[in-house]
Computed example of a mutant assay.
Amino acid sequence: MAEVIIAPDAEGRAVAYLKARFTALGDSAKVGTKFPATGSSRFVRVVRAGGVSELAYDHPRLVFICSGSSSVTAERLCSLTRALVLAWARLSDDVTRVQDAGDMAYVPDPDSGQDRYQFAVQVDMKMSAI
């Protein structure tokens, strides 16, 4: 019987990685796949925005949207998050490569007016047999 291959949960792994790194740095930023209705103004949202898969690897494009109480706070959080994400392949076994796919950009939320910055990367993650 042929093996069944499945892609890893790229968003979930990115969230877990960033939570661990922020904790290690003593940073109180929150991370998830949806912005909270209320709560932390320093928040990183992780979104899979496409990518491609092949037999052995998944190559998701991930977008990281960082919010803050001011544009300065959001920019600093985004800069830290970007540095951590670009180091992901060196600091964990989850990914084998991280490639920059879009530098930081200011994208304030049009509904709430909240200050946000975002960036994108393409990562290589090994597929798993189930």
Score class of each variant (00 low, 15 high):
E3C: 11
E3A: 15
E3K: 14
V4A: 04
I6S: 07
P8L: 13
D9P: 05
A10D: 14
G12V: 13
R13P: 00
A14D: 13
A14P: 14
L18I: 11
L18T: 04
K19H: 01
K19L: 02
A20N: 08
R21Y: 00
R21S: 05
T23F: 06
T23S: 15
A24I: 01
G26T: 09
D27L: 02
S28H: 12
K30V: 09
G32Q: 08
K34I: 15
A37C: 06
G39R: 10
S40G: 04
S41A: 05
S41K: 07
R42G: 02
V44P: 02
R45A: 12
V47F: 07
A49V: 15
G50T: 01
G50R: 01
V52P: 00
E54Y: 05
E54L: 06
L55M: 06
L55V: 11
A56E: 13
D58P: 00
H59S: 00
P60V: 09
R61P: 00
R61G: 00
V63S: 13
F64T: 15
F64H: 03
S69M: 14
V72R: 09
T73H: 11
A74I: 07
A74Q: 01
E75T: 00
C78N: 14
L80P: 05
R82D: 08
L84D: 09
L86S: 09
L86A: 07
A87S: 15
W88E: 09
A89E: 03
A89N: 02
A89C: 14
A89L: 06
L91E: 07
L91V: 07
S92T: 10
D93K: 01
V95T: 12
T96N: 05
T96C: 10
R97P: 00
D100V: 07
D103K: 04
D103F: 05
M104W: 10
V107S: 15
P108M: 11
D109H: 06
D109M: 04
Q114Y: 14
F119E: 13
V121P: 08
Q122I: 15
Q122K: 04
V123D: 01
K126W: 05
S128Y: 07
I130M: 10
